[in-house]
């Protein structure tokens, strides 16, 4: 019998000190009573209701929640690709709306420009800001080196693997020098192995770059592995259910996946996201037995 898990709120002194330090940093992104309604057949459907949170500079925040909780709507609103129906959003204390390079975005579907090489993709945002070709070229090379694609600078996206495409997309978003990097399930389309490598890689990049990350995922382990804080949403309507300060110390590595703090956090997330499985007992599928008696697999 293994020893019982600690409480997910218990923090070691080192972790507690780290959180204290984070809270001293200025707030980069503030979401203030944000709401979003969609018109529906039977009156408006509330996708997001009264969402408020703050993200400090160089903090890594994950947003997690059951499907349909409005995670993607939330990040699209923050990126300026969707309009909120109420509430406001502040970046560095200034109210803002609409798409802007200060809020960079990495999409699940890569969205690289297929007609541009890796380097030209990374240069895109710099060119949009009016930087001249030579300087944009030099800066782009730095970002490409940072994500480890030096050899592929002149390759078209179609020739890259999924992981490399997403690294290019991260370099492209970072090159525009965003205050907040928004990531909408960026590793969702990758296979498990590539995904784990990309997570470590992302932490590595984050450690070396002055950027604040808001990361959406539905993978509990991914959220715990990456985040300082996890924002747990609930569905119908989408609301903040709990904000968890992840007690797993940094730097993170894969061996922490079985540490007591990690497992404690994971259990709490499971409670929040999959509450009381037996409540759904009536949803059992009406399965008819189609095999012979005695021919059991279990």
């Amino acid at each position: 019998m293994s020893e019982p898990l600690p409480d997910y709120r218990d923090q070691s002194p080192a972790v507690a000190a780290r959180f204290a330090k984070i809270k001293e940093r200025p707030v980069v992104l503030e979401i203030d009573r944000l709401g979003r309604q969609f018109p529906g057949e039977h009156g408006p459907v509330v996708a997001l209701h009264d969402i408020s949170f703050k993200v400090h500079r160089r903090e890594f925040v994950c947003v997690i929640g059951p499907s349909g909780c409005g995670k993607s709507t939330l990040i699209r609103i923050i990126a300026g690709l969707d309009e909120p129906t109420s509430g406001r959003m502040l970046v560095d204390g200034k109210e803002t709306s609409g798409p802007c390079p200060e809020r960079g975005m990495v999409f699940q579907g890569y969205t690289l420009f297929p007609w541009l090489t890796v380097k030209k993709n990374v240069m895109f945002g710099l060119k949009m800001q009016g930087m001249d070709g030579g300087q944009a070229d030099r800066e782009a090379r730095q970002w490409i080196d940072l994500v480890g694609l030096t050899r592929f600078a002149d390759t078209y996206p179609a020739q890259l693997s999924g992981g490399m495409k997403q690294r290019t997309a991260i370099a492209r978003a970072l090159a525009a020098n965003p205050r907040v990097l928004l990531m909408d399930e960026p590793f969702g389309a990758l296979d498990a192995q590539t995904r784990a490598q990309m997570q470590s890689h992302l932490l590595e990049i984050w450690r070396n770059v002055d950027v604040t990350i808001l990361f959406i995922t539905h993978d509990l382990d991914e959220a715990i592995f990456l985040a300082d804080r996890i924002l747990v949403l609930k569905a119908h309507p989408g609301e903040v259910q709990e904000v968890i300060e992840v007690p797993v110390p940094r730097p993170r590595n894969l061996s922490q996946l079985n540490s007591p703090e990690f497992l404690a956090t994971r259990r709490r997330l499971e409670e929040l996201i999959h509450p009381r499985v037996d409540a759904h007992a009536h949803e059992h599928l009406p399965i008819i037995r189609l095999t012979q008696v005695g021919d059991d697999v279990e």
Binding site: L81, C100, R103, T111, F113, P114, M128, A176
Partner: peptide, 25 residues
């Protein structure tokens, strides 16, 4: 549409969206 949105988050304005994204795409 995702390409257009990606370009918007990178700071493309209307004219650039047409000339730098829609046309080459």
């Amino acid at each position: 549409c995702a390409l257009i949105e990606a370009a918007q988050t990178l700071g493309s304005k209307r004219r650039q969206l047409v000339l730098r994204v829609i046309v080459p795409a």
